[in-house]
Computed example of a mutant assay.
Amino acid sequence: WGVPAPELEGVKGLTFWVWPESLWAPISFTKTYLENKGAGPETWKDWWCSPEAEVYQFIGEDNIYFYGLAQQALFMGLQGKNYTAHPGPGALKLSKLVVNNHILFMDKKASSSGAVKPPMADDLLNHYTADQLRAHFASLGLALRSVGFKPKPYNPTATARDGDPVLKEGNLLSNVLNRAVRSCFYLCQSRFNGIIPQGNISPEIKAECDTAILKYEAAMARQEFHEVMKILDDFIRGINKIWSKNTKEAMDTGNAGLEKQTLIDVFHMVKTSIVLMHSIAPVGTERVRDFLNMGQDLWSWNKIFEPLYVHMKDPISHKLKELPPRTDFFEKHPSQIQAGEQ
Rank of each mutant, 00 (worst) to 15 (best):
W1S: 09
V3M: 07
A5R: 13
E7P: 00
E9W: 12
W17P: 12
P26K: 12
E35D: 09
K37D: 05
T43E: 14
W47K: 13
W48V: 02
C49T: 00
P51V: 01
V55L: 12
Y56K: 15
G60K: 15
L69D: 04
L74N: 03
G80V: 01
N82W: 08
Y83T: 04
A91K: 15
L92M: 14
H102K: 13
A110C: 04
P119F: 01
M120H: 09
L124M: 13
L125C: 07
A130D: 08
A135K: 10
A135T: 06
F137D: 00
F137E: 08
F137R: 00
A138G: 08
S146I: 02
G148L: 06
K150A: 03
T157S: 15
D162W: 00
P165S: 10
V166S: 11
L172E: 06
S174W: 07
L187R: 15
C188M: 11
C188I: 03
C188H: 11
F192A: 08
I205N: 07
E208Y: 00
C209K: 13
A212G: 09
A212H: 11
K215F: 01
A219N: 14
H226L: 04
V228R: 15
M229K: 14
K230W: 01
I231W: 05
W243S: 10
W243G: 02
W243Y: 11
K245V: 02
G257A: 11
L258P: 06
K260F: 03
M269N: 07
K271S: 09
V288P: 10
R289I: 00
R289E: 06
Q296D: 12
P307L: 06
Y309Q: 09
M312L: 10
I316H: 11
H318Y: 05
D328T: 07
K332P: 01
K332W: 02
S335Y: 02
Q336V: 01
I337K: 15
G340W: 08
E341C: 04
